[in-house]
């Protein structure tokens, strides 16, 4: 984990209220997909935690949704500006448990961290299926990118404007999998837990103070006692979660 400055190469809208930012700098602190960065935003006090979507030796990509003043300010940052990051925070997904046929289930802005995970699982020669859930066709992003990695992709839309009508759980019955990995809004995670028949890992979101484990602002209850989403998480094993 380190604090450093990263240069913005791209900061562009890819779907309504959803932006992709590509940052250049040292990515060596990243050890697993599903980790996040805590990014300093002009004129705001607290950093904002945003999951890492993808990375290589020189750049990393984050995809974020404008939900308030902080992310709004982030969306206005320009190419060439420097950003102050804490990188890389949290545990990330563990691919050792995936079996041969892992299933990735993402909803909305929960989709991005699954991209780096998909890349890693495919590099490990696993057969990866992906379910991407969105509200409507215009909000879909990363579908083509997942397909380009070689994953089998099912898209669901709540209004039926694209792909399978319904929620990610409606698509889960079609997937033959050994294990699952998921990220998305909490009601979706709960529904995935109620539907899933295998072991899996859930990535949680919480408002954070520091992102580094110091403030206890993001603590959740688990079967193994209180855990900090920022440090012991954001990824938790299915069997340890208290719903």
């Amino acid at each position: 984990m380190k604090q450093d400055f990263y240069e913005i190469l791209i900061n562009e809208q890819i779907a309504p209220s959803v932006f992709k930012m590509v940052l250049a700098g040292d990515t060596s602190p990243i050890t697993a997909p599903g980790q996040f960065v805590n990014i300093k935003i002009p004129e705001f006090y607290l950093r904002r935690p945003i999951s890492i979507c993808d990375w290589n030796d020189k750049t990393l990509t984050i995809i974020y949704k404008v939900v308030g003043g902080g992310t709004e300010s982030l969306s206005r940052m320009k190419k060439g500006e420097k950003t102050d990051l804490l990188i890389a925070l949290g545990n990330g997904y563990d691919t050792l448990l995936s079996g041969d046929k892992p299933l990735l289930i993402g909803g909305g802005v929960g989709v991005p961290p699954l991209f780096g995970l998909c890349k890693k699982l495919i590099a490990e020669n696993k057969t990866v299926s992906v379910i991407l859930g969105f509200n409507t066709k215009s909000e879909i992003f990363l579908e083509d990118e997942f397909k380009a990695l070689g994953a089998k992709v099912i898209v669901t839309t709540a209004d039926g404007s694209y792909g399978l009508k319904g929620f990610v759980t409606n698509a889960m019955e079609y997937a033959d999998c050994t294990y699952f990995y998921t990220c998305g809004p909490k009601p979706m995670l709960k529904a995935v837990n109620d539907t899933a028949k295998t072991g899996g890992q859930f990535s949680f979101e919480e408002r954070m103070g520091c992102g580094t484990g110091a403030c206890m602002g993001c603590t959740c209850k688990t079967k193994n006692g209180p855990k900090r989403v920022c440090t012991e998480g954001p990824v938790f094993l299915r069997e340890e979660i208290e719903w």
């Binding site: 705001f44 006090y45 919480e206 408002r207 403030c215 602002g217 993001c218 209850k221």
Partner: peptide, 19 residues
């Protein structure tokens, strides 16, 4: 355990916490 989340809120040049 402390309080339920959210426990943290951004404020102008400050943070509000209810850990």
């Amino acid at each position: 355990f402390g309080n339920p989340t959210p426990r943290i809120a951004e404020c102008p040049s400050a943070v509000l916490n209810s850990v």
